[in-house]
Design a protein around this nucleic acid. Structure first.
Lengths: 87, 87
DNA sequence: ACTTTTTGTTGTAAATATACAATACTTTGA
DNA sequence: TCAAAGTATTGTATATTTACAACAAAAAGT
């Protein structure tokens, strides 16, 4: 199965936490270069690795990874505000 | 990274839909034996394949796959009813 | 400006997921 | 009970992910 390129927000989330790739890699238990490959979206994580990342950030997989390009977090917020604000 | 064994509900969900592995495989675009391996939990899907399965069933990945053994669907329901019913 | 830390790049090797084929076993249904 | 459909098993081949190392480039802190 030729697998689709997936998009993710790892680098943004990691920066919000203020940790380095090495730190994140250590916590999760992978090589720090693996985090690099994921952030650059050079390949997709295994489902298990995706779960580990999702557990670390305390967020569902769908909020971190997506088959469709992810909008910026700020963009998400604006969109949600519009939805709530009604009209 | 030695990857953890993951659990899933593919066979139950597939049976609820009343389709065969071959059918599911065709829809998703993988070999039918791959579905077999996943249902028997002999290996984990890639994140992309997990997304495809999740898209087909219209359910979030977390409801289909889990690092911890999944309780039966009926078990989930009972638990939720207890939670709602209070006490 | 200099030093250190972080990130990117390239290359190789190992582990794991997926495909495919052939055949046996099991279940279902007529 | 027999036939067909579905599932399991075994084996081999390919693709993809992960690890690891060494070095270059960039960013951050002093």
């Amino acid at each position: 199965m030729k697998s689709r390129k997936l998009y993710n927000r790892i680098s943004v989330l990691r920066k919000e936490k203020g940790i380095s790739r090495q730190d994140l890699a250590d916590i999760i238990g992978v090589n720090f270069q693996t985090i690099g490959y994921l952030e650059r979206e050079e390949y997709n994580p295994s489902l298990d690795l995706a779960f580990k990342i999702s557990e670390y950030f305390g967020l569902p997989i769908e909020l971190i990874f997506s088959p469709k390009p992810l909008k910026s977090l700020i963009g998400e917020i604006v969109e949600l505000k519009n939805k709530i604000g009604g009209k």
